[in-house]
Design a protein around this nucleic acid. Structure first.
Lengths: 149, 149
DNA sequence: CTTTTTAGTTAAGCGGGCTTAACTTTATGC
DNA sequence: GCATAAAGTTAAGCCCGCTTAACTAAAAAG
């Protein structure tokens, strides 16, 4: 029998360990790129959710349109994103990653994945399938939660 | 048979989902407190690793001693931490959370845990023990990695 | 006991993110 | 067509984090 407490407890412990590593790695990488965290976040967001307009950026990061405009301007200057005109609405801009931007995100992800690959190498052969299954279950549950919320 | 690729893949998917939720929740909370991310990070760090001196803060966050001093000063002003004199070395300061600081960290953790509790409620009865076991294995492996690194 | 090293503080100055406010341009409602 | 709303931009100004540089005070080294 698995008590609810036990499950919550193991999730929390895992999260503590995991968050620490992940956050630190993320910030460290952002620093090496010379980009600020907000700038880097915009790149990551474009990677995950695809091209979008100015207004979506200000919504998602809860900043004014002015702030979003200025932030993206710097990323355009840096050559990480491009601001194309939306043909259907000439007021709107379609913002998307350039190859250089994609490259940077990929490198960042790879660095963050490295720790996980090391983690995998620490697992015993009999543990691996169990872990795979559990993670799939968790990921599926998380996706469900995101959809309903 | 579990292929190494399958394991890496499921870990990465889980991480993507997990990181998004976690990071967003963390930043949102930091915003509501009125503290900046660096300030909030110091509080979290004090919570996890206990009291420390000024120099440790500048090391861990990779900032100059001057920056660390100024950051902590603001947290002292806000009543979140206190700066006591180290009796064994009167140059050094022992920095630790005040009750108010502890309270704030606790509230933040609770908020971040809420999502995980919802996650747990989405799991089927037969999945729960598997997840518990897998997470324990992963946490243990992560701790081992941290120690060797 | 003097010199040097170590821990931390303070002040000046830079760049970044953010906001408000004023503005341009394009779409929409009537 | 004209007024109004919507999407972005630009500029001024604020606060913040960070760095360098100059400083104080205490410990360690010689």
């Amino acid at each position: 029998m698995t008590s609810p407490l036990q499950l919550k407890q193991s999730l929390r412990e895992w999260m503590d360990v995991f968050m620490h590593r992940s956050m630190r790695g993320w910030m460290t990488f952002a620093k090496t790129t010379g980009l600020s965290m907000p700038q880097f976040s915009i790149l990551m967001q474009l990677h995950h959710r695809g091209p979008c307009g100015m207004s979506e950026i200000s919504e998602r990061f809860d900043i004014t349109a002015a702030a979003a405009s200025q932030l993206t301007e710097k990323l355009v200057q840096g050559g990480y994103i491009e601001r194309a005109e939306d043909p259907s609405d000439r007021r709107a801009k379609s913002i998307q990653l350039t190859p250089k931007g994609k490259e940077l995100v990929d490198v960042g992800m790879t660095e963050r994945y490295r720790w996980m690959d090391e983690l995998v190498s620490k697992l015993s052969t009999e543990d691996k399938p169990k872990v795979v299954e559990a993670l799939k279950v968790l990921t599926e549950a998380a996706r469900q939660l995101d959809e309903t919320a």
